[in-house]
Design a protein around this nucleic acid. Structure first.
Length: 293
DNA sequence: CTCCTATCCTGCGAGC
DNA sequence: TGCTCGCAGGATAGGA
């Protein structure tokens, strides 16, 4: 696990805000802290949709069902955040560039799509320049039937549901490359392009390997490292929660030291071989041709 | 069924 | 230096 943090590598070339499970969990925890002060729950006094057309139109039920409700808790499922109330939940996906911030009076920004006004006078803003995010209403009891939530695989940190045998079964006779398979949210949730690459590096498995060719010992390693990278990233993200207020648009995200992500052509942190890059499953992928087979 | 590709959208960096 | 262009990504629809 130490190796994960080994290299002093800057990966700031691209927008660091790419919410996978750890980033979403960090945002969830930050929101939970804001919305429950001194054991007092926040009440939504008003919901303002400033622009309704993000990935999908924000339904009016978000406003009609949730206005006046008390936010009882914040949950994460896969890369979704759920604001729970007695009358249903606000479902939020950050997409690529989604963020929540406390927006004091006057702090209105381009690409703010929704304001949650709280009864204590505070205001939460959902901003998403690229509009890949999603806001929706989930009726009570629809947690497993809502279209966004119905076909999700197990949580990767759930050792009862996600383990080597499960992964091996999911891989059985599949010709698909292992990398897009572990990014498939119906197989296992929360693993995006960054952590898929990092986990495969740590497990010593080429992202191009056909899933059906995964050996049992490799499945053990892959599951272990998926868990490790996600856990380490959550732990690292946790330290940013205290800055949630000030952090604004980049709240909840953290700088990271990656072994392969965005390091194409640079030397492998383990063997110094130049890292190779290719598009796999439609996504940019970097790996070490020596360490990963 | 399985797998792959295009699509959505904006910001940013590479390159001219 | 200023401009254009291509690429980045999660989820999903549609095609092979």
């Amino acid at each position: 696990l130490d190796f994960f943090f080994a290299g002093e590598i800057s990966n700031a070339r691209h927008n660091p805000a790419m919410p996978e499970l750890p980033e979403v969990e960090t945002v969830r925890a930050g929101l939970a802290r804001l919305l429950k002060k001194n054991a007092t729950h926040a009440i939504i006094s008003r919901i303002e949709l400033t622009r309704g057309d993000i990935r999908k139109p924000i339904p009016t039920t978000v406003v009609t069902q949730l206005t006046g409700q008390t936010i009882l808790g914040l949950r994460r499922r896969a890369k979704y955040i759920l604001f729970d109330t007695a009358q249903g939940s606000l479902l939020c996906h950050l997409g690529m560039t989604g963020s929540w911030r406390l927006a004091p009076p006057g702090d209105e920004r381009e690409h703010d799509h929704c304001y949650l006004h709280l009864s204590d006078g505070r205001r939460l803003a959902f901003r998403d320049p690229r509009r890949f995010g999603l806001l929706d209403f989930v009726a009570p009891g629809q947690d497993t039937t809502h279209p966004c939530l119905a076909h999700l695989g197990p949580e990767p940190l759930d050792e009862q549901m996600f383990h080597a045998d499960y992964l091996l079964t999911a891989c059985h006779k599949r010709k698909q490359a292992i990398k897009p398979l572990i990014m498939d949210q119906s197989i296992v949730v929360g693993v995006g392009n960054i952590y898929a690459q990092e986990a495969l590096f740590l497990a010593g498995i080429s992202p191009r390997r056909r899933a059906g060719r995964l050996r049992p010992t490799e499945a053990v390693e892959l599951v272990k490292h998926i868990r490790h990278v996600l856990t380490a990233a959550i732990k690292a993200g946790g330290s940013t929660i205290s800055d949630f207020r000030q952090a604004g648009g980049s709240s909840g995200y953290f700088q990271h030291q990656f072994n392969v992500y965005d390091r194409a052509g640079l030397p492998c942190t383990r063997c110094t071989t130049p890292l190779r890059a290719a598009v796999i499953g439609g996504r940019g992928t970097t790996w070490c041709p020596t360490c990963q087979r």
